[in-house]
């Protein structure tokens, strides 16, 4: 399950007060649904599909959680960056 190449994976910390709740998960999923292949989200040992709100919610990430996002296909790198930036901006809440 380990990705090859640094550019395929990015780490980000959840900064918004509520953590990954339904509304923020919906925003991530919306972006991830445009990807050609799967965008994965990992927290500790859990790995989920970022295009599914439900999957994201099951990670149960509070504020301060460290998340790793990885992509299977380099063509999704823009979407990956968009998601990272969305999380860094605290979902504009």
């Amino acid at each position: 399950m380990v990705e090859s190449g640094k550019e395929y994976s990015r780490e980000v910390v959840i900064v918004n007060e509520l953590g990954l709740h339904a509304r923020s998960a919906a925003k991530i999923a919306k972006l991830a649904q445009n990807a050609k292949s799967t965008i994965w989200m990992m927290e500790k040992s859990e790995k989920v599909d970022a295009s599914s709100i439900i999957d994201i919610l099951t990670l149960a990430c509070p504020k301060g959680s460290k998340i790793t996002l990885t992509i299977d296909s380099q063509s999704d790198v823009d979407i990956l960056n968009d998601i990272v930036s969305l999380i860094e901006r605290g979902f504009e809440e």
Binding site: A22, D49, S51, S52, I54
Partner: peptide, 16 residues
Amino acid sequence: ATILETQRALLKDKMI
């Protein structure tokens, strides 16, 4: 409405 928007997004969620 944002609650409803989340529900709308859930309709198409792959887990469902």
